[in-house]
Design a protein around this nucleic acid. Structure first.
Lengths: 197, 197
DNA sequence: GTCTATATAAAGATAGAC
DNA sequence: GTCTATCTTTATATAGAC
């Protein structure tokens, strides 16, 4: 397969990265141990260091960078679809957000990023902004230019909406009497039109 | 002081609990180590076990229970103030939320509570609901009965608002050109009236 | 590339002097 | 109640056989 010559990774390295991504994103840096990742990837934890010589910190940085870049690409695609009005664009954003494990930026800043080197933390922090808030702000500003909405602080409003959508993940299944997508759509509707009768 | 006879705690025990509360709430269970708590309380980490024989898990449960009970009491007081309309009631809620470290229920369920015994986790999980969503649902239902608002799924909307308000904590100081309370008030306004021009 | 065995380091916890 | 010293457990990481 000449993987080295074309710069591709081996199969198990990919499994390690996927397992690490899922666990780190879900539980955060400290709550994940190397053995869990290796087990999920189907190898012995000692073998993991063959694929990721830098160990846990470097694995975290690689995997979170990749995760946020993909997240950003997905958000971009969601808002790029040829939809005319704000509501349908935000519904696409909602679909993307509920289809993925929450980014949880509060945890990211309060614990995860304090455990790694400052430069890496800065990069991930900026990526998180680019992947989450920035696309939503773009959509809101365009809608404002079309005269669909009117607000002075669209950045804060974008953050508010994103936080609401991510929180849908926290609803336990037993309390769900609508699909998560329907809940997202209701949140978006209230965001645009308000709760007022 | 006869502290034993009246069931009161010693001074340093209280310092330990306060330090533990602040750290656990901010960083989560795994990211906090016993030495950090002891250091913040001004004692050697070995001395901590004198005050909390159950060690880290039991300390976490005690401190989170206390935290959420107080949080609930504060939310209750906020909504009980003699304010007639929904907006001013929610502004009091917003003031309480931004004055306290986020409860972060997503992290609570995805990592913190998986590290402790299931029964304790259930109790904390229920307390978190009572302390955060329940008071907001109560306020929204009352407003609906007065005819101020109209929505089918007030529970989900309460969750949405609470998540938005907690997320205000995640805004770095350098990006703040309004006070957090002002941002909370704007979020509440949009929640009630919408972004629409 | 993967394992077994082992080393190192960090965290939780206990014993016992003061 | 608090400390020093020590023990145990757990997690990260390395060495070297296969």
């Amino acid at each position: 397969m000449l993987v080295d010559e074309v710069g591709l990774s081996s199969d198990s390295r990919e499994r390690v990265l996927n397992a690490a991504e899922e666990l780190f994103v879900k539980r955060g840096y400290e709550a994940v141990i190397i053995k869990d990742i290796a087990k999920a990837a189907g190898i012995h934890h000692a073998s993991l260091y063959h694929h990721v010589p830098g160990g846990k910190p470097s694995l975290y940085v690689e995997v979170m960078t990749r995760h946020l870049q993909r997240y950003q690409a997905g958000m971009h695609a969601a808002i790029q679809q040829p939809q005319e009005n704000l509501e349908s664009q935000l519904q696409s954003v909602g679909a993307w957000v509920i289809a993925h494990t929450p980014v949880n930026v509060i945890r990211l800043h309060n614990s995860d990023l304090t455990a790694i080197k400052a430069e890496a933390a800065d990069i991930i922090s900026n990526l998180a902004f680019e992947a989450t808030l920035f696309p939503i702000v773009t959509v809101l500003e365009a809608a404002q230019q079309r005269g669909e909405i009117q607000h002075e602080s669209l950045g804060y409003m974008a953050g508010s909406l994103f936080a609401s959508l991510e929180a849908i993940h926290a609803i336990p299944d037993q309390y769900l009497d609508l699909s998560r997508q329907s809940i997202a759509n209701q949140i978006i509707e209230v965001f645009i039109r308000g709760l007022k009768a």
